[in-house]
Design a protein around this nucleic acid. Structure first.
Lengths: 209, 209, 209, 209
DNA sequence: TATGAATGAGGCTTCATTCAT
DNA sequence: CATGAATGAAGCCTCATTCAT
């Protein structure tokens, strides 16, 4: 129909605006940091004007918090389900947990959010607390459950799971951060596949009974 | 002595000014990020006036670069010497390398610099490259030498040292970042000692032949 | 009747829109001043959307002028007729003039308009001139006629009516202004009845032959 | 000396700045109202740049409050002393009080402040309360004392001083407002001398025993 | 050297006005 | 006629930088 051609690019899609703005803001906040990100750039990247932003977010800080919350919340459920329902060996679970975690983080905005929180936690203590509770505590606990499952089944040797959890999480988080900070800089880019393979190899060998 | 009277110990010596400014700037840049750090706050924390800062540094960017360079340079020599001259077992070397690295980073400003570069690499590509070459490449290479020494001596199993190097460095760097970002937030602070012990335990068990 | 069903009483009739907008605008302009009044608030108070306002008024300035003119025009005729046709004593005329003036001003929007012109005359010189000619000159002249009538009839002593006119008008205008500015602030509100009684008492005693 | 010529107009007089800014702000706030006054215009009129204003006042509202307070406080003492210490007849006191009040108001910034408060009291309730207590209540009380003195000495007839006070104050205040609002508009300017003479004449005749 | 008053470019935010529906 | 999403000019405010002392 010729009518369909009538509404190509000038159509205003009110309901999509917040998503587009959040996506644009996430990119810029991650790239440049909170203070160095200009709202006009966010608006331009979302294809709207400066003023439009204020139809959906009260101010810059509110936009920032929305970016963090929107990208943080719908994330850990899948990984947690995997840990709790896994039927195979603990080595297999560990492998799937790490690779799955990275895949999920890569496709959602979590890699960017992690970098953002690392950089801005000092300026937004409430957000840092929120991030700590929603992401850090939950992912730590997930790893602990995985380790204890392995020890209970006799597949992993006896270790201090509480002390070990962050050691295992750390390389995954670092991969996210490198991906976001030095990745774009593109100096000897890291190969996530080989990196994760080595990590899993080290863990499985380092934990096996 | 009449000289002592001329120069009581509370008097700030002029030649210390740049160091005091760099120290103050490092703290604030790390806490708040580059853009959110006000030069007036840097000057105040260093005990001088805003104008004085410009007697020693051309501008804000120059101060930032000086901060990074001053804290980055005098760092890796000791660790490198340790790797090259170590006489004991490779497990022992690994342990000393990791704990020594953390100690050195903790006492120099490297933990802060690492956080800073992670946050600001997008805004300062030249600095990112400099950091990459001076810190990342050298520390990676150091770890590779350590791993190859272990394999050559039959103490470590055969692994892909190039792929493994970053896996081993990552937890140490993460410890620095946590220390700088969520540490001050003081939500369930991490215990570096237990953390490093677990890391070393994991590595030694994961690498042993 | 079927007509009644077609037009329930809660339905806003289109022809009332301009009046409702003018009324809402008058309130807000008087409360907050011209610059501090937002057109969105005017529209909301009138129960319409922001865009609708522009169907009836060209822009903010045009709305403001319409508010002033609409509330200014239909006012002095009654009072003027009273002065010219009064049959009683001049003291009685003075009493009725003052109380009648206040009543009319109170029930029309003139008290608000007076405050508005006092506040915004500097920003709207043409309006100020208009107000001066339509309100100030005419009411001054009315008072002059009243005074001259009293002197002509030997009821008032000989005074300079031209110089006295504003002295007599001033307390009435001040009552309007207090009513509009500090009235809502409600700090020791003024009692118009007692105030006007004192004013009339002072004038009659001060003018009597 | 040629040296004196060296520092003619570029000399920075830190201590005078606040006064110059307050004076410039008073003028513009009175002319245009609070919202319509641009801080850049205030700064320009004071001969400084936009940013300088913020060295002395926190923000626009703070400047506004400072303007009101600075011009309001040092004002009523003289008039009050006059009422309490006057030795002559009460008619004489009334004459001097009214003319003195006008002179003082004219030379201080009170005429402008009065107009400002009339226009902006709705937007600054706290200031309105402050103004009410510091200016209105005190000047009202002063007039009451004057009236009671006259009645006590048998020079004025018995009246309700409380109800009459505002009637006597009103014409003086109106003179201030006219002076500030329609005065600059310069349409048939009022002659303060003749106006006050008529006012005093009316009062003395209207109050005499 | 050291100071701190002054500057002005630039970012955040508001709101009068437009326009496609 | 009515709506309300969108625009962008304009004002407040911050802060890196300069400069006379």
């Amino acid at each position: 129909m010729s009518e369909a051609a009538k509404e190509p690019r000038w159509e205003r899609r009110k309901q999509d605006r917040p998503q587009e703005l959040l996506a644009a803001a996430l990119q810029l906040f991650v790239e440049r940091g909170y203070a160095a990100t200009r709202l006009e750039d966010v608006a331009t990247r979302a294809g709207v004007s400066k003023g439009t932003l204020y139809l959906y977010f009260e101010n810059k800080e509110s936009l920032f918090k929305s970016v963090v919350r929107a990208n943080m919340l719908p994330l850990l459920d899948e990984a947690e389900a995997m840990v709790d329902n896994h039927a195979g060996s603990s080595a297999e679970l560990l492998r799937e947990l790490i690779t799955g975690w990275w895949q999920a983080a890569k496709h959602s905005g979590l890699t960017g959010i992690s970098k953002l929180m690392m950089a801005e936690s000092g300026n937004f203590p409430e957000l840092a607390r929120f991030y700590h509770e929603e992401i850090i505590l939950r992912s730590d606990a997930m790893v602990v459950r995985m380790l204890e499952r392995g020890m209970a089944r006799g597949e992993f040797r006896q270790i201090d799971a509480e002390a070990m959890k962050k050691v295992i999480v750390a390389p995954v988080v670092m991969l996210m951060l490198w991906d976001q900070s030095f990745g774009p800089c593109s100096i000897t880019p890291i190969d996530p596949q080989a990196y994760l393979t080595s990590l899993i190899d080290l863990c499985i060998n380092g934990l096996k009974a």
